[in-house]
Amino acid sequence: MGSKSLKRKVAIREPKRTILVFTEGTVTEPAYVKELKRLDHVRQSTSIRVEIAGAHTVPYPLVERALDHAADSEIDDIWCLFDVESPQPHPRLKEAAALAAKNDKVHLAISNPCFELWLLLHHQDVTRHLSTADACKLANSLDGLSDKQLKASEYVPLRDEAARRARLLAQQHRRAGRSFPDDNPTTDIHLFVEAVEAAARKSSP
């Protein structure tokens, strides 16, 4: 009886997906994204680069910067995280959204009035119109921190609950006929989080 050659089957892992993230915020948003990167399933399968645009960068040039990288074949997806702000919204918000829509690789995760709303939704329902100052004050009261610091490790485990609340807010605005940028309070950060986790699943063996 002839001997059979034994060949070990090797699991083939897809290359890591690369996501480039542009943030308007310089502290809070990068801290949250950094904590997402630490999740085992994300860390093993997804490369996330964060580009901090700076505190005085408004959405339209942020999207322009993102589009400058859209032709890079080593980048799979580009996300822009920015705020609407209230009571004085950023200029050219609709133009920024229209510009991003011209390229399938560029996606937006917009918070109205600001990213701190997303943080609040990890812990509680928020339905009333908020100014940026009010949202920041409420978010700081959750963990006793100021100066936009963030204990991201206490938030990321609750991201599914925050996403549930964010989807409910979006549904309420649709039923009321309110749309961007007049949909305060609302946030799309859950779409970014879900895209990161979907990329991680896609890259898993």
Rank of each mutant, 00 (worst) to 15 (best):
M1A: 10
S3K: 12
S5Q: 14
L6F: 12
R8K: 13
A11S: 11
A11T: 12
R13W: 04
R13Q: 13
P15H: 05
T18F: 14
T18G: 00
F22W: 07
G25R: 11
T26S: 13
A31S: 15
K34W: 05
L36N: 01
K37C: 13
D40L: 10
H41M: 04
Q44A: 06
T46E: 05
R49N: 11
R49Y: 13
E51G: 00
T57Y: 06
V58R: 04
Y60F: 15
E64T: 09
E64Y: 01
A66P: 03
L67H: 02
D68G: 00
D68N: 03
H69S: 13
A71N: 12
S73M: 07
S73A: 14
E74W: 01
I75Q: 05
I75P: 07
D76V: 13
I78H: 03
C80R: 03
F82P: 06
V84Y: 01
Q88F: 10
P91K: 02
R92M: 15
R92Q: 15
K94H: 05
A100T: 10
K102P: 01
V106H: 04
L108C: 06
A109H: 12
N112K: 06
E116L: 05
E116Y: 10
L117G: 02
W118Q: 05
L119A: 02
L119R: 04
L120M: 10
H123I: 02
H123V: 03
H123D: 06
D125Y: 04
H129N: 06
S131E: 10
T132N: 06
N140V: 00
S141K: 08
D143W: 10
S146Q: 08
S146N: 05
K151I: 09
K151Y: 14
E154D: 11
Y155P: 01
P157I: 09
P157W: 11
R159N: 01
R165C: 06
A166M: 08
L169R: 12
L169E: 10
A170K: 13
R175K: 11
A176L: 12
G177M: 10
D182L: 13
D183P: 00
P185L: 12
P185K: 07
T186R: 11
H190Q: 06
H190F: 09
L191D: 08
V193I: 14
V193F: 12
A195C: 05
A198M: 09
A198E: 15
R201H: 07
K202G: 05
S203K: 07
S203C: 15
